[in-house]
């Protein structure tokens, strides 16, 4: 699973690079606009270790933010599944808050929380939380009639049993949503770092942009892609293990 994801990413990356070089040589553009392969190699040798560390930093924040948002979405999803006023209020709030672009909200967060870990974590969690929440509410509020009916008739139904049944029956959907939101967590962290943080790969990309150094950005994109692939594979593997365990 891992090697397939990695080589698929490498193929996509190489296609992108080929396209860039094609533009460079057809339009006769200088290395300032699109760096040459030699310059990219030279830059890779120069910044690889530093950028790898930065990507790991970003990934660690993204993972923590992702876990936080999964926990939060589960709790709110359990409350929101109820067909009460609170449930519908949570849904409306989630839809509305999701509509705000994070770049507009981020400066407020940075003013309040500073440019440290907490801001990056919050923005990462915010970006992946709302899509997660909407899916969780949808999944957890959908009754599994043929199973739930038995427990209801025998009066053995409790809220946690109901949640378990619905989660088990929709495990594939839940895994897909969690894996999908992982990329959002990474994007969120990078955006947060780009806007105002002073660490992580987003911050390094911002510096490279100030210096108009596309070679550095291409190296950063490669590392982000590899690390994202690794994380997504881990999540898929965890989903697979959970399914197997529950089936037993």
């Amino acid at each position: 699973m891992l090697h397939r994801r990695i080589y698929q990413f490498v193929i996509v990356y190489l296609i992108g690079m080929t396209f860039l070089f094609l533009i460079k040589y057809v339009l006769n553009l200088s290395d300032y606009v699109i760096p040459s392969p030699g310059e990219i190699w030279h830059t890779t040798c120069h910044v690889f270790a530093r950028y790898l560390f930065d990507v790991m930093d970003t990934l660690s924040v993204a993972i923590i933010g992702h876990i936080l948002s999964i926990c939060l979405a589960t709790i709110v999803g359990i409350i929101g599944r109820l067909t009460t006023w609170v449930g519908s209020f949570i849904k409306v709030a989630a839809y509305n808050i999701q509509a705000y672009p994070i770049v507009a909200v981020a400066p407020i967060i940075f003013i309040l929380l500073g440019d440290g870990l907490s801001s990056r974590l919050l923005i990462a969690a915010m970006i992946c939380y709302f899509p997660l929440l909407l899916s969780f509410i949808g999944i957890l509020s959908e009754p599994v009639g043929h199973i739930e009916h038995f427990y209801e008739v025998t009066k053995r139904m409790s809220w946690h049993l109901q949640v378990k049944i619905r989660a088990f029956e929709n495990m594939n959907k839940l895994t897909t949503v969690i894996v999908g939101s992982a990329t959002l967590a990474i994007v969120g962290t990078i955006v947060a770092e780009f806007i105002a943080a002073s660490a992580g790969i987003g911050y390094s990309i911002r510096i490279a942009l100030y210096q108009s150094d596309l070679a550095k950005i291409l190296v950063a994109l490669f590392l982000i892609g590899i690390c994202t692939s690794l994380y997504l594979t881990c999540l898929e593997w965890l989903g697979y293990l959970t399914r197997k365990r529950w089936e037993v």
């Binding site: 339009l27 200088s30 290395d31 300032y32 606009v33 760096p35 310059e39 210096q211 108009s212």
Partner: peptide, 30 residues
């Protein structure tokens, strides 16, 4: 980045700071 736009012919004139110009020239920008 005005320099990139000039090279791509999206603009004919631009404004750039000296550090941008010197960086671009060091990478062969005309």
């Amino acid at each position: 980045d005005a320099i990139k736009e000039l090279e791509l012919d999206h603009a004919q004139f631009g404004v750039a700071s000296a550090d941008q110009v010197i960086r671009a020239v060091s990478k062969g920008s005309p």
